[in-house]
Amino acid sequence: VSVELPAPSSWKKLFYPNKVGSVKKTEVVFVAPTGEEISNRKQLEQYLKSHPGNPAIAEFDWTTSG
Rank of each mutant, 00 (worst) to 15 (best):
G66K: 11
F15M: 10
V1H: 13
H51M: 03
E45A: 12
K19D: 09
E27Y: 15
V28C: 05
S65F: 09
F60L: 01
A56Q: 10
P55T: 03
V23M: 14
V28H: 01
T26A: 15
E59H: 06
E37M: 15
L5T: 04
V3H: 09
P8V: 04
P17M: 13
I57R: 04
S2D: 06
E59G: 03
F30E: 00
E27I: 14
K25C: 13
E4D: 07
Q43I: 07
V28P: 02
E27G: 14
P17R: 10
P6N: 07
E36Y: 03
N40W: 02
K42R: 12
L44Y: 01
V31H: 04
G66A: 12
P33C: 02
L48R: 00
V20C: 13
F15R: 03
W62R: 01
P8R: 03
G21D: 11
L48Y: 02
R41E: 11
E36N: 03
S9C: 15
E45S: 09
T63G: 12
D61K: 06
F15T: 07
S9T: 13
S22G: 12
S50G: 08
A32V: 01
T34M: 02
W11K: 05
G66F: 09
S9F: 09
L44R: 00
G21Y: 02
S50Q: 11
Q46W: 09
T26L: 12
G66N: 12
S2T: 11
P33Y: 02
S39F: 14
L14W: 08
Q43Y: 05
R41S: 11
Q43E: 14
S65L: 10
V29G: 02
T34D: 09
A56W: 04
S50N: 12
L48E: 00
F30W: 07
A56G: 12
D61I: 07
P6V: 07
Q46F: 10
S65A: 12
N40Q: 06
V31T: 04
N40E: 07
E4L: 10
S10E: 12
E36V: 07
E45T: 08
P55V: 06
S22H: 10
L5H: 06
L5E: 05
L44C: 02
W62L: 02
K13G: 03
W62G: 01
F60D: 01
L14V: 09
A32C: 02
E37R: 15
N54H: 07
A56N: 14
S65N: 13
P8N: 05
F30S: 00
S2K: 09
P33R: 02
L48Q: 00
T26V: 14
W62C: 03
E45L: 10
L5Y: 09
E27T: 14
L44S: 00
P52M: 04
P17K: 09
G53L: 05
V31M: 07
I57H: 05
A7H: 04
E59W: 05
F15D: 02
D61Q: 06
K12Q: 11
E4C: 11
F60M: 01
K42V: 12
L48M: 03
T64H: 11
T34P: 01
G53A: 05
K24S: 14
F60W: 01
K42N: 11
L5I: 05
D61R: 04
V20W: 11
H51F: 06
E45W: 10
S39N: 11
P52D: 06
V23P: 13
N40M: 04
P8L: 05
E45C: 09
V3K: 08
Q46P: 01
K49A: 13
G66D: 14
S22W: 08
